[in-house]
């Protein structure tokens, strides 16, 4: 279970504090419930994900994680361009304390990512799809209760999306995902519930379809 309590967030800019991105977000995300975050560009979806993932801190309010939460998978974050996919994978295994079964984990990651020989090429030479394959493979190599994905599925091809989905189905009895996506199909496939972020606040919907409906009705015709 993840409890988000009255979270406020604004970023520092060169000209002092910026405008409030999140203003009083309160949520309880139950265990084993996959959730999709919906909202316009700049509404604060990624910000909320980063705060839930513990990478960023709210200016006010708090987040309580009563389960293990993955790092937020997202564009380029957590991968060093000059190192190869394998070297990046080793680093992530090591900081998670898997020095002792490093080679098996790396083999798993390599098999899941399916990027072939590129696994031994520097990450900066990867396409965005290859990056997201690697990121997904990296976080699935560890048994988290909650996986956080910031549009990583968006750049993957159909085969990869299916693979990621079936991997998640296998985990569904003990794990869930919190994801941002602009693709309705992906959201319906992965998520049960939805959160609509609008005007700095968040609204919870038990059904992802209702969240999508609310989001769409807010759009200008």
């Amino acid at each position: 279970m993840i409890i988000v309590e009255d979270v406020h967030k604004r970023y520092q800019t060169e000209h002092g504090p910026g405008k409030w991105v999140l203003q009083g977000v309160s949520l309880t995300i139950p265990a084993k419930c996959s959730v999709g975050l919906i909202g316009a560009n700049g509404a604060g979806k990624s910000t909320l994900l980063r705060i839930i993932g513990g990478v960023d801190q709210p200016n006010k309010g708090r987040v309580e994680r009563q389960c293990s939460v993955s790092w937020p998978m997202g564009f380029g974050g957590g991968l060093q361009g000059s190192l190869t996919g394998r070297q990046n994978a080793k680093f992530v295994c090591r900081i998670h304390g898997h020095e002792y079964d490093l080679s098996e984990r790396i083999a798993d990651i390599e098999a899941f990512a399916e990027i072939g020989r590129a696994f031994d090429e520097p990450v900066k030479t990867y396409s965005s799809g290859m990056r997201s394959r690697l990121q997904f493979a990296l976080s699935l190599a560890f048994d988290f209760d909650v996986y956080i994905s910031d549009e990583v599925t968006a750049t993957g091809d159909a085969a990869f999306k299916n693979k990621a989905f079936s991997a998640f189905k296998k985990l569904a009895d003990h794990a869930s995902i919190i994801m941002v996506s602009h693709d309705e199909g992906t959201l319906r496939q992965f998520c049960l519930a939805g959160i609509w972020i609008h005007d700095g606040t968040a609204q919870w919907f038990d059904q992802i379809d209702d969240a999508l409906k609310a989001y769409k009705s807010s759009l200008p015709a």
Binding site: G54, E64, R65, Q66, C67, S68, V69, K90, F91, R94, I95, H96, G97, E99, F142, D143, F144, D145, H174
Partner: peptide, 24 residues
């Protein structure tokens, strides 16, 4: 945060975590 590493990923002491981060 302590709780984020509890659960099925296995709880590690802060010193162990720091040591593995340093070596990595």
């Amino acid at each position: 945060s302590r709780e984020s590493l509890k659960g099925n990923i296995g709880w590690r002491s802060p010193v162990r975590i720091t040591a593995s981060v340093y070596s990595a």
